[in-house]
Design a protein around this nucleic acid. Structure first.
Length: 156
DNA sequence: GCCAACGTTGGC
DNA sequence: GCCAACGTTGGC
């Protein structure tokens, strides 16, 4: 079992949107970066733990706990000509982009990016590294535990 | 809105 | 295969 941080823009799909969906589950469509895609395709399994992160918004940070609910399968938006994420080079026989399903476990208090940066324990956390733009990053088990227990006051 | 950082594209 | 130009991300 692995740990991840997945970024979503709350103006597009925020944690409250997902909580309002059936089974509090969303397909993680729209990833168009090969490294992030490969994490989903090659490394994510059902039950992996996920920090649901709000990005590109007034208060960026971790907004809740989630988990992988379904293994990677083709991203529906790549086949939709009306979608911003349409990829003409992609076919159902040979799809280029995939996504997993993510289910919200629980909303937490917002642990802001600024607060994360203040923690010396987290100085090596992938998402905090200079220039990082990956929308999906692995999280070390120790970092996961620290954030859940020390910052959220929850059992991991 | 700015801009640093990084990824992708395409000419050669 | 190099690399300049361009596009995107995302914090601030």
């Amino acid at each position: 079992m692995r740990y991840w941080l997945m970024k979503s823009e709350p103006g597009v799909v925020g944690i409250d949107h997902v909580l309002a969906m059936p089974n509090q589950t969303v397909d993680w469509w729209g990833v168009r970066n090969y490294q992030a895609r490969n994490f989903m395709r090659d490394q994510m399994s059902v039950g992996d733990k996920v920090f649901f992160y709000h990005s590109n918004c007034p208060e960026p940070g971790i907004a809740g706990l989630a988990e992988v609910a379904k293994r990677a399968y083709p991203d529906r938006t790549q086949f939709d000509p009306a979608s911003h994420y349409f990829d003409p080079k992609s076919t159902p026989e040979n799809p280029r982009w995939v996504n997993v399903d993510v289910r919200i476990v629980r909303k937490t208090r917002l642990v802001s990016l600024a607060e994360l940066r203040k923690q010396s324990r987290l100085e090596h956390m992938r998402v905090l590294q200079r220039g990082n733009r990956l929308s999906i990053t692995p999280v070390d088990p120790g970092e996961w535990k620290y954030i859940c227990e020390k910052l959220m006051g929850e059992g991991a």
